[in-house]
Amino acid sequence: MKLNSILLTTAAIAWASPAFAAGDLFIYTYGEYTPPDLVAKFEKAFDVKVHVDTFDSMETMLAKLRAGAGGYDIVVAGDPNIQLMISENMLEKIDVNAMPNYVNVDERWRDVYWDSGRQYSAPWAWGSTSFMVDSAVVKGDINTLGVLFNPPAEVKGRINMMRDVNEVINIALRYLNLPRCNENPEDMKKVLELLETQKQWVKSYNSEFKEPLVSGEAVASMAWNGYAMRARDEKPSLVYVYPKEGFTGWMDNLAVPKGAPDIENAKTFINFMMNPENAAMVSTYARYSNGIKGSEKFVDPKLATAPELAPPAGTPAPEFIPNCSPASTKLYDRVWTKLLN
């Protein structure tokens, strides 16, 4: 919730004073993302008190760090955000690739576009953004974005879209088969028309999608795979869809913001998190894959077979989308404002 972030910002400013006792680690991350047993294990092993502060979106996190909120040793950031923070000199170069546990990082997540060679960041969790339908209500072919943009009668008026300009526009661009990070006003006009047509069938724009799906307010909703699994736990008829048009992939990473009070503790934590056993705790708790080799055998066995984490054969590869240019960001913003006008 937005208000939540305002309260948290206020709280963080209140405690972002320079005096910290030795043996503290301040983590800034999404809510319900840090396993309590992991925190306890780290505290016990290194005699460090861990403090977790949460944000509700990357925008909140960036805005707050930019506004000068210091005092964090570890920040969790998505792939385009790491790219941005490196380019803006907001992160400490901590040479993750030289850490002992780096050998455990899956080769797939080493030379990534946002931090090639992993000098600044380590994998935390990765997943996909697609959508979920209630199979008890929605009939017919569900493996297409048409469920959201050309909905059958039973879906009309019961769609939830995320309240996130990039996620919504990306999924619309994919349905229209137009290039991502689009700078073409003509293309973006088509996106706006599509979204405005869809709006009459949209119940709400809400990134907290689990509640509306479980309560039955929405029968089709954009979703993140791990959180989708939690929703399915509460309502077994919910199905996470890998549409034939493709879907977005993302990775959240651990990094150290400039001016971190205790860089050594931060490095210790990052190395600790590249240990398969510890990375597995994140997956078990947050229900996302982690990018650390050998973690599979420590992860809750029900995740191994979960369709949200193991897409069926023939599923298109997730598409990772970097930061878009200022021109397309402006166009996106204009589309978003007109849509919600």
Binding site: M1, K203, Y205, N206, T337, L340
Partner: peptide, 8 residues
């Protein structure tokens, strides 16, 4: 919350 984010 009550407007579902549909109107600003």
């Amino acid at each position: 919350i009550l407007g579902g984010g549909k109107t600003l």
